[in-house]
């Protein structure tokens, strides 16, 4: 280039990039400080503590918080996850099938169940006995919750599995087939185990999603021994006209979801080394 960059000219009054950055950062700190001052000045701390962190009310939540609510959340989530895992794998295999109608069925299912709000699925499940007279979801309330989570989870898990199956190099199938394995045998022995290993991190994230979605069981109209964390917190909150139980339920979710999130990212980091 013929002429030098203009910023290098000494006589100019413009700020150097470094100076500019310092000013920008300074402004950011000032905004933050003002926001903090506003919160401290205007928030009614007494009222907040009274409504969201009342120790007496929090104590009322024990021990049922863990022995009933968390336990049920885990039952719904693990049940729904197992359903989603198996059905999702089936859908992924259908999605990649040589048989065109299977592909269509899988695509239609996946698109519908990923496209609808999970809440809607739960609402529909409550109407199943009306639509199919005499039909009962096996397992009662647990069954309904697990079915709802499983149907939704399977659609997402199917896409996770599809990515995993497609990421297994073609040479793996070729090696298996050249040893005389049938197509099915090669899938079961060689491709699927590798695909499952590859999708462990995204599957952990799926589990966390399902754990959060298990709160939708609330809309199945469950009660008593079937309540999970969200319903439990909500019921107690109504009873005491105080939001503390909801906070407590929220913290309980976080105790489970945050470690799982870290686990997922650690597994993600390790994946690079195993292959």
């Amino acid at each position: 280039m013929a002429d030098q960059p203009k910023t290098a000219e000494p006589g100019r009054a413009r700020l150097s990039p470094r100076k500019k950055q310092q000013v920008t950062r300074g402004v950011q700190y000032v905004v933050l400080a003002l926001a903090l001052v506003a919160v401290v000045l205007y928030a009614d701390w007494g009222s907040l503590a009274e409504n969201f962190a009342k120790i007496d009310v929090a104590k009322e939540a024990l021990p049922d918080l863990f022995t009933v609510a968390l336990r049920n959340t885990i039952i719904y989530t693990v049940g729904g996850f197992l359903f989603a895992f198996v059905f999702g794998l089936l859908l992924a295999l259908m999605r990649l099938s040589q048989v065109l109608p299977y592909r269509w069925i899988a695509v239609v299912y996946i698109e519908i169940f990923r496209g609808l709000p999970a809440l809607l699925i739960f609402l529909m499940i409550t109407f199943l006995p009306l639509a199919l007279p005499g039909f009962q979801v096996p397992g009662g309330t647990y069954g309904q919750g697990i079915l709802g989570l499983g149907l939704v989870g399977a659609a997402y898990q199917a896409e996770v599995f599809r990515a995993g199956l497609q990421a297994v190099p073609k040479g793996q199938t070729e090696a298996a087939r050249s040893l005389g394995m049938s197509a099915t045998r090669a899938q079961v022995t060689v491709v699927i185990p590798q695909a499952i290993r590859m999708v462990i991190p995204p599957t952990t994230n799926q589990f966390v999603s399902l754990l959060k979605d298990s709160s939708l069981v609330l809309f199945l109209g469950v009660s008593g021994e079937y309540v999970e964390l969200a319903k439990f917190g909500n019921d107690l909150a109504s009873q005491f006209a105080n939001a503390t139980p909801i906070m407590v339920a929220g913290i309980t979710y976080l105790i489970v979801t945050i470690p799982l999130g870290y686990l997922a990212s650690r597994l993600e980091g390790r994946k690079g080394r195993t292959r």
Binding site: P169, G171, Q172, E174, A175, A176, V190, Q194, T274, R275
Partner: peptide, 8 residues
């Protein structure tokens, strides 16, 4: 095979 294709 050229790429070995062992089962990892």
């Amino acid at each position: 095979f050229q790429q070995f294709n062992l089962f990892p």
